[in-house]
């Protein structure tokens, strides 16, 4: 009789566990996919962020994305939409005010605390289960609904498709803007377009790693990649690889406990960067390919060119010299 009872309850619990497991599996599968997609977007977008020297802007956008999400929460709108609106708006403001100017950074510095303050205000006004359900600042515990995943995949595909379409001009405009403009490329238009893509990417990342830690996804992997190579192609591949390691690895590790994903992601990301930095330092010390390169270069003369004779006044000038 007792035996029968135990059997019954263990049967029940095993059913429940099975149910739980199935549910958990769906959630984990979703967040793993979300992580993989984000890793891809973050790795690719991050490369351009580094090329364009926009690290600080990413942080600013993330804070406004947070404010947007919190505002959406307050008025009962969709949080993802809120965070998208916040970050794209911030990105557009930065894009139009021109970030390459020196005042760009101070502008971001002004915008950032404002966004963060707004977000905290909205969150504190909101009386729902904000702390349980959303960790907009520090990232979510593993739970990505199928709807959330779908919207993320759609937006990610969109960002990547646009990036592929403008790949060469954007690279040109990011690394050599003045010549790109002389070549007839719409450098300003590309810059604004990229800011929109960046805004969308930040909004996506905020949902998983949180506003405060977006840099770990959008900067660190690309920075690590750039420590290892200066080939643009290899930079992108390594950056994506590192971002994937951080995201997927972070999610798998986070499964064990109640800690949010973000500490795992940021730690892996940082560790990868640290390794890359050490590799770079070792390479620079031992190989010092810079010196080797310049040493060979000065001895070469292009076809048809003759060595300068060196006669005459080296200071001779055809305009009254300064």
């Amino acid at each position: 009789m007792i035996l029968a009872e135990i059997d019954w309850s263990s049967f029940l619990s095993s059913v429940f566990v099975f149910d739980d497991y199935g549910e958990l599996f769906v959630l984990v599968r979703n967040s793993l996919w979300a992580g993989a997609v984000l890793g891809l977007v973050g790795g690719v977008v991050g490369t351009f962020v580094m090329m364009r020297d926009l690290a600080f802007a990413v942080h600013g956008i993330a804070e406004l994305s947070f404010a947007g999400a919190a505002a959406a929460l307050l008025i009962g709108a969709d949080v993802i939409t809120g965070s998208l609106v916040g970050s794209v708006l911030a990105a557009l403001i930065m894009g139009f005010t021109g970030l390459h100017a020196r005042e760009g950074n101070s502008f971001v510095g002004v915008l950032m605390p404002f966004g963060l303050g707004l977000g905290i205000l909205f969150l504190s006004l909101y009386e729902g289960r904000s702390s349980n359900k959303f960790s907009l600042l520090t990232g979510q515990i593993v739970s990505v609904s199928s709807l959330q995943l779908t919207s993320m995949v759609v937006l990610s595909v969109l960002v990547l498709a646009v990036l592929v379409a403008v790949w060469r001009p954007l690279t040109f405009a990011s690394t050599d803007p003045f010549v790109a403009r002389a070549k007839g490329l719409p450098v300003r238009g590309l810059s604004i377009l990229f800011m929109v893509l960046l805004g969308v990417s930040v909004a996506l990342s905020v949902q998983i790693v949180g506003a405060l830690l977006v840099l770990a996804l959008l900067i660190t992997p690309a920075a690590a990649a750039m420590n290892l190579t200066s080939s643009p192609g290899r930079t992108v591949v390594l950056s994506v690889l590192f971002a994937e390691l951080a995201m997927v690895g972070g999610i798998l590790l986070a499964l064990g406990g109640n800690i949010p994903i973000s500490p795992y992601v940021t730690t892996i990301s940082f560790a990868l960067w640290l390794v890359s930095r050490v590799v770079r330092a070792v390479r620079e010390r031992s190989a010092s390919y810079r010196r080797a390169v310049t040493a060979t270069a000065t001895t070469t003369t292009p076809r048809g060119a003759v060595a300068a004779d060196g006669t005459g006044a080296a200071t001779a000038s055809s305009t009254p010299a300064p």
Binding site: P169, F172, L185
Partner: peptide
């Protein structure tokens, strides 16, 4: 080809 659209 830096001014051409798309990837190489």
């Amino acid at each position: 080809d830096g001014h051409r659209w798309g990837v190489r």
